[in-house]
Amino acid sequence: MEISGIISAIIIGLVIGVLGRLVVPGRQHIGVIWTILIGIVAAFIGAAIAAGLDVKDTNGVDWIEWLIQIGLAAIGIAALDRRAPRRR
């Protein structure tokens, strides 16, 4: 992977992570770095799932791929939030 691909993955991961965090109701007790990391992982896994379903490369915006990635990010954020210690 080239440096431009890594930078793109980080930016897309940030967007996916933030959108996934917005989907999860309530306040999350995880940091920004974890949100970005979950977003990056969700972006890669979501792209692989979309490619497997043959919905990755369409004309225009790949809405189905984005929905898969955001859904995976929301699941990851909710799962990690359950493990995060609660502050009082």
Rank of each mutant, 00 (worst) to 15 (best):
G13Y: 03
G17K: 04
R83W: 09
G20V: 01
M1E: 10
I49A: 09
R82M: 12
T58H: 08
I30M: 05
I40C: 14
I49K: 06
A42Q: 03
L53N: 10
I36Q: 03
G26C: 07
L72T: 11
G13K: 10
R27S: 11
A48R: 12
G20R: 05
F44L: 04
F44V: 05
I12N: 09
A42D: 05
V24Y: 02
I75W: 03
E2P: 12
A74W: 06
E65M: 12
I64P: 00
R27H: 14
D81I: 04
G17C: 01
I36S: 05
D81T: 02
I75S: 08
V23G: 11
I33S: 10
G13V: 11
K56Q: 13
I68L: 09
A48T: 11
G46W: 04
I45V: 14
L14A: 12
G31R: 07
N59S: 12
A42Y: 02
I10T: 03
I75R: 06
G17A: 04
I64C: 00
L80D: 12
I30D: 14
V55M: 02
A78D: 02
G39A: 14
I12W: 07
I11G: 15
I75N: 00
G5T: 13
N59V: 08
A50R: 01
R87G: 06
G5D: 14
A9E: 14
L80R: 13
L19C: 10
I6H: 10
I12V: 10
G20P: 07
L67H: 04
A51F: 04
R83F: 11
G13I: 03
G5E: 14
Q69W: 00
Q28V: 05
V15D: 10
M1K: 06
I16S: 03
L19H: 01
W34P: 00
G26L: 05
V41M: 05
R86G: 07
I70Y: 09
A84P: 15
T35R: 01
L67C: 04
M1N: 10
R83H: 14
I75Q: 08
G5M: 10
A73R: 02
I68M: 12
A74K: 11
I10D: 07
T35E: 06
R82D: 08
N59E: 14
T58L: 03
L22S: 13
R21G: 13
A79P: 02
M1G: 13
I70S: 05
I77M: 09
I40L: 14
I49G: 04
I38G: 05
L19V: 10
P25V: 15
S4T: 15
G71S: 06
R88I: 02
A51T: 02
E65V: 03
R82V: 12
G52P: 08
I3Q: 07
D57Y: 05
G13R: 13
L72H: 09
I45P: 00
V18K: 02
W34K: 11
G17I: 15
P25I: 10
D81H: 11
G13D: 04
I7E: 02
R82K: 12
E2I: 07
A50P: 03
A84G: 13
L19R: 02
R27N: 13
I16T: 14
I11L: 15
I36P: 00
I12R: 10
V41E: 10
